[in-house]
Every structure is written in structure tokens, then in C-alpha cells.
């Protein structure tokens, strides 16, 4: 029961309280660009969740080894990118050979795997000293945080497009300011 509670707590924390996109700025480019073309939002969020969770858990398992724990930030960076690459290749193999995935999905897979959000999750776990359930929770939370952020930005974009903005603020300037307001809101939840 406590394992489940730890996992849920970490997921809620990563998704709502410390939304990694708004309060950390991780994966913002992907979220903004995805919100402009939200057709594959669910698939993208799922893959981000998959990569962040699996990389997060494997990296925490590696942390149990004494030699790995002693490594510095660069050593950890190499470990994390190696793990992420391995997870990416395995997922790709499964998708291509077993599930006969579409080309479009495969193209998106690279973006879902190699972005600042997915790579930040193992770093956060490493710094916070998360356990395995917490690592699972933070991985799931990262995927949900991405979906939530994309959804919120998409709602804003739809309204911004219809609204009567000054010419110079139309497009990305308005998007950035809108994201800034959302980011301020999430920072307010954390009480920073």
C-alpha cells in the first residue's frame, strides 16, 4: 500500500505540483510544437511516459550499484543517455517488427525519446534519491505533465488565434506570454 502511495505521490508531484514543463522548463519546445499540431498528442504523451518511466526505473536500479553511486554528474549523464538509447532501440524494434507501426509514429519516436523532459527525469531521481516506486511515479508524472501542458497550451492557442491581438504579439510572442502566465500559476502552487 505504501509503495502505491509513494508512486502516486511522485506522479502527482511531477504532474501537478511541480509540472516539469512549466516550473522547470523541460520539454517546452516539444509541448508548444505539439500543442500546435495536437493530432498525435496521446501517442506522444504515451511514448514520453514510456521512455521516462522505463529510463527512470532502470537508472534507479543502476544507482543501487556502489560504483555508479560514486560517479559524478558526467558519469551519470553518460549512463542515462546509454539507458535511454537502449530503451529507444528496444521500443523501436518492437514497434517496427511486432506492431508494424506507421512511419509517422516512428518519426515521432525519436522526438519522444530524446528531449530535455525525458532526460531530466533520471537526473531529478538521482538528485532527490528516489526509490523505485517513486521513480515509476515520476516517470508517469512526466508523461502526464506533458499531456497536461500540451492540452493547456492548445486551449490557449485556440483562443489566442481568435482574439484580437496587436499585430506584433500575434503568433509566438502571445504563446510565450501565455505559457509564462501558466508557468507563474504552477510556480504559485509550489509557493516559490
Amino acid at each position: 500500500m505504501s509503495v502505491l502511495a509513494e508512486m502516486l505521490l511522485a506522479a502527482v508531484y511531477a504532474m501537478l505540483l511541480q509540472n516539469l514543463i512549466f516550473t522547470g522548463g523541460y520539454g517546452t519546445s516539444e509541448a508548444i510544437r505539439m500543442s500546435a499540431k495536437p493530432k498525435q498528442l496521446y501517442a506522444m504523451s504515451f511514448f514520453i511516459m514510456l521512455f521516462s518511466t522505463s529510463a527512470s526505473v532502470i537508472c534507479v536500479l543502476f544507482e543501487q550499484i556502489g560504483a555508479v553511486r560514486k560517479m559524478g554528474i558526467i558519469g551519470h549523464a553518460v549512463l542515462f543517455i546509454t539507458v535511454l538509447s537502449a530503451v529507444y532501440l528496444i521500443t523501436l524494434t518492437v514497434l517496427v517488427y511486432s506492431l508494424k507501426a506507421k512511419k509517422r509514429t516512428i518519426r515521432r519516436l525519436g522526438i519522444a525519446a530524446f528531449n530535455t523532459l525525458v532526460l531530466a527525469v533520471p537526473f531529478i531521481n538521482y538528485r532527490a534519491g528516489f526509490s523505485i516506486p517513486e521513480a515509476v511515479g515520476s516517470g508517469i508524472g512526466a508523461g502526464l505533465a506533458f499531456a497536461l501542458a500540451t492540452f493547456l497550451i492548445n486551449l490557449g492557442l485556440q483562443r489566442l488565434q481568435k482574439s484580437d491581438l496587436p499585430e506584433m504579439f500575434k503568433g509566438t510572442p502571445a504563446i510565450f506570454i501565455y505559457v509564462a502566465i501558466l508557468s507563474l500559476g504552477f510556480a504559485g502552487i509550489m509557493g516559490k
Partner: peptide, 30 residues
């Protein structure tokens, strides 16, 4: 905080857009 970065990017983008419209009216950054 990140929100300050987003806010600043928004205003810089708006300012850059105004310069582009003035100097290079044939270009459309949108």
C-alpha cells in the same frame, strides 16, 4: 524562474517582429 524567461521571450519576440515588419516588410516570421 522559468516564467520570467517565457515572459521575456514573449516580449523579445514581439519586439523582433516589429523590427522585421519595419525593415523587411516582405518577410513574414509568423
Amino acid at each position: 524562474l522559468p516564467f520570467g524567461g517565457f515572459l521575456l521571450l514573449g516580449f523579445i519576440a514581439a519586439f523582433a517582429k516589429k523590427i522585421i515588419k519595419k525593415k523587411y516588410p516582405e518577410e513574414n516570421p509568423e
